[in-house]
Design a protein around this nucleic acid. Sequence first.
DNA 1: TTGTAGGCGTTATCAT
DNA 2: ATGATAACGCCTACAA
Lengths: 362, 362
Amino acid sequence: MSDPVTMRQIAERAQVSIGTVSHVINGTARVRTKLRMRVQEAIRSLGFQPSALAQGLRLNRTKMLGMIIPDITNPFFPGVVRGAEDVAFRNSYRLVLCNTDNEPAKEALYVAELRSFRAAGLLIIPAAGSDLRAELSSGTPATQPVVCVDRCPEGWTGDAVVVDNEEGAYQAAKHLIRSGHRHLAVITGPALLANAIERLNGFKRALREARLSIASEFVQEAAFDTRSGYQAAKRLLRMLPRPTAIFACNDLMALGVLHALHELDLRCPEDVSLVGFDNLEVCEYTNPALTSVYQSGYQMGAAAAGLLLERIKGLQDAPRHIALETELKLRKSVMSIANFDKIPSKKPRRRSKANREAVLAD
Amino acid sequence: MSDPVTMRQIAERAQVSIGTVSHVINGTARVRTKLRMRVQEAIRSLGFQPSALAQGLRLNRTKMLGMIIPDITNPFFPGVVRGAEDVAFRNSYRLVLCNTDNEPAKEALYVAELRSFRAAGLLIIPAAGSDLRAELSSGTPATQPVVCVDRCPEGWTGDAVVVDNEEGAYQAAKHLIRSGHRHLAVITGPALLANAIERLNGFKRALREARLSIASEFVQEAAFDTRSGYQAAKRLLRMLPRPTAIFACNDLMALGVLHALHELDLRCPEDVSLVGFDNLEVCEYTNPALTSVYQSGYQMGAAAAGLLLERIKGLQDAPRHIALETELKLRKSVMSIANFDKIPSKKPRRRSKANREAVLAD
DNA sequence: TTGTAGGCGTTATCAT
DNA sequence: ATGATAACGCCTACAA
């Protein structure tokens, strides 16, 4: 009574063979109405639920997708996961969530395990410096499709869903330049991460186009988190001449910059302008509200899961590299230098006088 | 060559029986050194990984934990999930993540599925208004342990790990009262949610102790999200006399209040003070930084997973109800009314003059 | 149309 | 100490 009901019990109750039960469940052969009714009744009254384990063993695949990410606690990733889960759910697939903390070893462990579990496919945001290809081809050649999300490991040639990082960063830098800034600094992410590199490239392209040069100490590497962003900002803000604008390659680091600014009693945007990347919800609530490059984690996750499911269903064409669009969201953290004294103060800000003084003193 | 290697292949390669292979893998019988070496060599060279599916089928349980939550996109939950995953991982368990969107039907579906998957146990943050007990006892009596996290459905008598919501809210209200506020308003969460009710109770207890009464329209119900918090704040801030302080029963709603305040050109904390609950990271970066009741989602998830694993290992004693502590984190969103003109301005704030004027005009 | 039986990869029992 | 063998619950030829 405490054990789950099996097809055998259904068969007994309905006075048919176990094969017949299977047939009515899977519609794999036509069964006389009378028997079918009996089976269905038995299923209902006994509360039968097929064992996903047995099915998986028999069919050599499950309805599970492995989702491997660095850390669900990083506010950019929940959206990705949710997007993936939603499309997985709609297709009767489930997600097993794996946090790697950017440790390639943990990633490799998870990959191996998910394969031995016959996950139908893998969605992976690779760890910094991971050699995904090696992990995948180790042991037996992959039978499960894999799509990379958010960033690709070096030399990845398989499916991927990312965002146009280069263009997003380019727009951010261009905005700063158009606002009159000439002393731009950038806080990049880990040099091992494809998306960090792309963003840096986009940033540099904008400078090049504007015939602006950048001192090497004005590009500081950090780890895509608040703490290291704060530290990088501290280094930057001590330099002379000080940069008048900083592009932080993600919002978490931008938050760190804000913190450093505050601590040094520098004002944003009057003393230094700031642009982030990701457009986290927190951007609306920071002081000042943070201008940032929007990217949709949700869409990324959803698109990746969609592609993965197509592969699972057998789609065979060439690997796809999908790059979603970004969009610069203007808020309050960038000040126009060229025209600072012509900016009409739309509604009288309480700090307007102080601000003007500060700017003039620059 | 593309198929996973099984124990049978190991047995052949090592020239032993399949049973022997099983024995060396599981240490379930002592095997002569020579044979054992051969088997281990075969395992290594063929890259054997046991099929979790077959194991699960045979043993009638897997190393999977089901984690059912409302929405990973809500910034309080990732910490919970991460805490759970960390302790699960350390014990070789994995997490399958399920988002219910607070829909009892979706919750019921997931519960049933996870059981048919022979998940070893379930960690559940119940949906608002879910009848978990019914879901669990439907069909076959539960064989998998379940622990409720963050909040319990009505009448839940099983294991649970929550936070002392009543006390947390009490401290928040008391802080407001000690700061001289007499016109307090509260924005509560959904009346169906145990934690929302407890927080409201704590709030009311503080008022009672201070012999303060509260007009019924000063307690507004919202949905624990920013939008509804914003709307509730709008209602509140239109009333006359206006509350001088608002306790928002979570930080998301507090964010909504901040937004409403800004829109109505009211200042926080000069015009209205605000306390939130959760102490999300965003509290540090809002304008002004938000005073909030800290609770550790991570600890909650970790404790819940720990308890669940004990149950899985067979722990049999009475159901536990673990309530973690909260702690009020003071920031800048509360102003002391009684002593407003005596507050020393520690370091000269740029807005201090304006602030003082505003307060005097109150 | 329906039933029988083999096998998916393990673990565990029982002989040997 | 080791090997054969029977399940676990399901799917699917193939036979009837």
